[in-house]
């Protein structure tokens, strides 16, 4: 038996780091959700289907601006030296995912605004009539729309992957130390975004299409989570221990019940039955998916902070 006793008792550090509370999971979730929304709406723009996909192309872009801003506000709240946040924009650090992220976020906003400009909502054009001319000028040029679609898909993908890479770059935290995390958060973001459209779209076609898409995303997510865990389990002792935090450790109940069960498997079954007309569409499934996506970020962020290279036995 090993007894490793440390006299260190730093706040937020010991006995295991707990530097990130609710703000970072919420930020990562909203970032992932917006990423998914950008990809969905970008895809339909690219395919020139913005008219039939009203929710995806009308609601999502403006909503994304709001959600992303909320996410960034959460990130801002998390900063310990808040009024120095501008320092991130005084430099570009190529080795820092967070630096990439902060610059990607700067590019995401114009892309989202351009997207929103293609079909600006009536309440906005009523106030700023000039937008109508601007919107017509953009919206009637299919090449511009396509370009905006591509930009949204690309930046959305970068944003989604970034939310995962942010964590996976931390080799010091074995649970996060998997490049699959980027793909997982991107897929989870897509599935949450699809579920969101499924939930709010009034058009039955759009609703069903996104439900189908969500089923694909959820299936992919299960596979990716499996790969993520297999990757950890076939690595070193500390990585195996990290995986066990989720599989059988203190985070297992939340992981199995809320992330896997209620967040993926049950909505997947319900939505599969729904798209095959076995049961009626219900808002419960997409709500569960969205909540599952949020809880996934919480579980990964919290368990990752517990996972460690050395296990301490604190002295007091």
């Amino acid at each position: 038996m090993n007894e490793i006793v440390s006299t260190r008792t730093n706040p937020m550090i010991d006995p295991a780091i707990h530097i990130w509370g609710w703000e970072i999971p919420v930020y990562l979730f909203l970032g992932g959700l917006v990423a998914g929304m950008m990809m969905i709406s970008g895809y339909f723009l690219f395919r020139g289907r913005q008219k039939e996909m009203a929710t995806s192309c009308l609601t999502l872009p403006l909503l994304s601006v709001v959600l992303l801003s909320l996410g960034m506000f959460a990130l801002f709240l998390d900063l310990a030296h808040r009024w120095y946040f501008w320092r991130m924009y005084m430099t570009f650090q190529p080795a820092s995912p967070m630096s990439w992220g902060s610059w990607i976020l700067l590019l995401v906003y114009p892309a989202l605004l351009a997207n929103a400009l293609i079909r600006p909502p009536a309440w906005l054009t009523a106030r700023i009539p000039a937008l109508v001319t601007l919107s017509e000028r953009i919206g009637t040029r299919s090449a511009t729309v396509k370009f905006i679609g591509i930009a949204n898909m690309l930046l959305g993908a970068m944003l989604g992957v970034y939310t995962g890479v942010l964590l996976s770059a931390f080799g010091a935290r074995p649970l996060w130390n998997s490049s699959i995390l980027g793909l997982l958060f991107l897929t989870s973001g897509l599935s949450s975004a699809a579920a969101f459209v499924h939930l709010v779209a009034r058009d039955e076609f759009e609703q069903k299409l996104l439900a189908k898409a969500d089923n694909a995303f959820l299936t992919a997510e299960i596979v990716i989570i499996g790969m993520f865990l297999i990757g950890l389990l076939s690595s070193t002792a500390v990585h195996i221990e990290a995986a066990q935090l989720l599989l059988s450790g203190p985070f297992a109940p939340v992981f199995w019940v809320f992330v896997i069960g209620l967040g993926i498997v049950i909505p997947l079954i319900v939505q599969s039955l729904a798209v095959n007309h076995k049961v009626a569409h219900t808002p419960v499934a997409p709500i569960l998916v969205v909540l599952g996506g949020l809880i996934l970020r919480f579980v990964i962020v919290q368990a990752g902070q517990v996972s460690h290279w050395t296990r301490l036995f604190p002295s007091h």
Partner: peptide
């Protein structure tokens, strides 16, 4: 220059 983002702590 530090914004207190805590990335270095996680790293």
């Amino acid at each position: 220059k530090c914004s207190g983002c805590k990335a270095c702590i996680a790293a």
